[in-house]
Design a protein around this nucleic acid. Structure first.
Lengths: 331, 331
DNA sequence: AGAAAATGTGGGAACGTTCCACATCCGGTC
DNA sequence: GACCGGATGTGGAACGTTCCCACATTTTCT
């Protein structure tokens, strides 16, 4: 008896059933709102649960049901606003389908990223959404073979086991470059702080667009800590720069102020992802928009379809759009 | 037999044990690296697990062990860089203590915030970290009475059931105002885009510091969508503005550019939280730094202490620091 | 040599829930 | 009055793991 009341013991559905004077089966049905329970018993059970502060135990439920009702999202980094839009879409759609969303943060660290994926799979999430292009193909294969998995970034060669939903990074970069060319820019640089499949696709787009226009191309890969001299860059003839994301572009804009380079007069700047940051900067940032929220929503649908039996891989590609602001002159 | 091999059936520890030719008990011990297993059996089990692609089932483990090895973090919003530092600290310390971290995103929506807290509790996390001041006291009480809970924002009147780890917002605001006064500013405004316990504490600090200096005080509460006219503000005599966070300050700096107000010459600007944004802006932003990573780490310790038996509530207050950059003139 | 201790292994209960098969009761129909 | 069917309720098995205890075998100590 004493042990029964020991501190720390959480009430179970059996405690609720006892207090309500019904069987645990009936309590279970009443708590979940199943049909086939008389209103009087239902009220009895609900009251008892309320009084005891009962909380269903997800572990037990998941164990017997075989599904957890969870969608796991693993992010490369938490404070990337691009990711935020995706998570919002995932949460919206998951809510509509009555699922819950938990997030794992890879902290820009491939090892941690894998740990997070493992955690999600061990928690038996019903679907996994991965927003990172840093996950080794082998890890994706294994994940995809164990649970419906959707990757939301550009992958050079996605494994057959996973679905992919991305926006066309090659085309997006082309859009940006064409906009710059139309505005009269001749010498366009691509600037990146890191190498990834995503960044590579954007480089491909830049090269494609510049070649089509018969213009030369400058690629700058700058290491994370290194300084950038915009005066020098500008003196070398570069009059526009496309950055791998808005964050890098923000840095360029700050440096332009510090180094007295006029944006967009002397140097036009374009970001990528069209995050909240783009509107926050001065001059505000021209950027490439991806339908992040919608991509997040579709990811949940893709999981639901897989669960319902689809076996062939989904390859969905969205068309990005140019959003012109003040960091590039109007054509 | 057919059912045994049906698609979708995940290998269990019993499958592993059978293949290794040992009992499930021994397999369990081998897989967890327990002592008391001969090296030969261990290798047999590990190989079998590898071949089958075995993954432990967290639900089953959590059910029988009574602990989940999970720390849940519930955030107000995902893309707040202040939060990011805290999560980093939580993850670091959790890893050291061999726990895993899952994140729930409240999406700035009180209802969603509560859903996330419920989800975490039902998942039977071993501890809950809440980074939001928008959670009703009653919800905090219930959460705290069910699982060790730490709140990482300023609360006007924290319930006895939860631990709190915060930085001294009153003092932080005082620091900022004193810095402005020393730099010769006379008419200082506090600008906020939203009302919260955190913001209120900062207002208290502003009022305190201005009263001590015998200076008048201007409080501006601006609704989310509303425009701000800095020319007007400046014309009215205000020569410095303290914002409720770096994001609001970023907006002020952009408006200052647009409305041709000199920062800091005509208007000094101070942010709060010292996020990555502060360094990214031009002029770079003077801000108030909180030891976010360390606060995150301490939150996990607080949970561990509670689990180990501490019953009195923890009330930890950190001293914030002023980080001077270019948006305020040097005194 | 025999007892004691250490080592390795297996069996079964338990965790909290869902779900299936089955019991009971009630009113209505032939 | 015998039978049927729907509504309401019950008991027990199952999910995959851990842990306690018992047992068998080997090693160590006196």
């Amino acid at each position: 008896m004493v042990a029964e009341l020991a501190a720390g013991r959480r009430p179970t559905i059996i405690d609720v059933a006892k207090r309500a004077g019904v069987s645990k089966s009936l309590a279970s049905r009443a708590l979940r709102g199943d049909a086939g329970v008389s209103t009087s018993s239902r009220d009895l059970v609900l009251d008892a649960a309320q009084e005891l502060g009962y909380r269903p135990n997800s572990a037990a439920r998941s164990l017997v049901r075989g599904v957890s009702g969870l969608v796991g999202v693993v992010l490369n980094q938490l404070d990337n606003q691009h990711h935020t839009g995706i998570v919002q879409g995932v949460q919206e759609r998951a809510k509509e389908l009555n699922a819950r969303v938990i997030i794992g943060n890879g902290a820009q660290n491939p090892e941690e990223l894998q740990r997070q994926i493992d955690t999600m799979i061990e928690l038996r999430v019903d679907g996994l959404v991965i927003v990172s292009s840093w996950v080794p193909a082998q890890v994706l294969e294994r994940a995809g073979s164990e649970v419906p998995t959707v990757v939301l970034t550009h992958l050079a060669d996605p494994p057959a086991e996973v679905d992919t939903i991305a926006s066309d990074d090659v085309y997006g970069a082309q859009l940006a470059v064409e906009h710059l060319i139309q505005a009269g820019h001749q010498r366009i640089a691509y600037l990146s702080r890191s190498a990834s499949a995503t960044s590579q696709a954007r480089i491909d787009g830049v090269v494609l667009a510049l070649e089509a226009a018969g213009l030369p191309c400058t690629l700058l890969q700058v290491d994370a800590g290194d300084d950038i001299n915009l005066q020098e860059l500008s003196a070398s003839g570069v009059d526009a720069v496309l950055c791998n994301n808005d964050l890098t572009a923000a840095e360029v804009i700050r440096l332009a102020h510090e180094q007295q380079v006029q944006v967009p007069g002397q140097l036009a700047v374009i970001g990528y992802d069209n995050t909240a940051l783009a509107r926050l900067l001065y001059p505000s940032l021209t950027s490439i928009d991806q339908p992040q929220v919608n991509m997040g929503r579709r990811a949940v649908d893709a999981i639901a379809e897989r669960t319902a039996g689809r076996t062939e891989a989904l390859r969905e590609l969205y068309t990005p759009q140019l959003v012109v602001r003040s960091s590039t002159a109007q054509p």
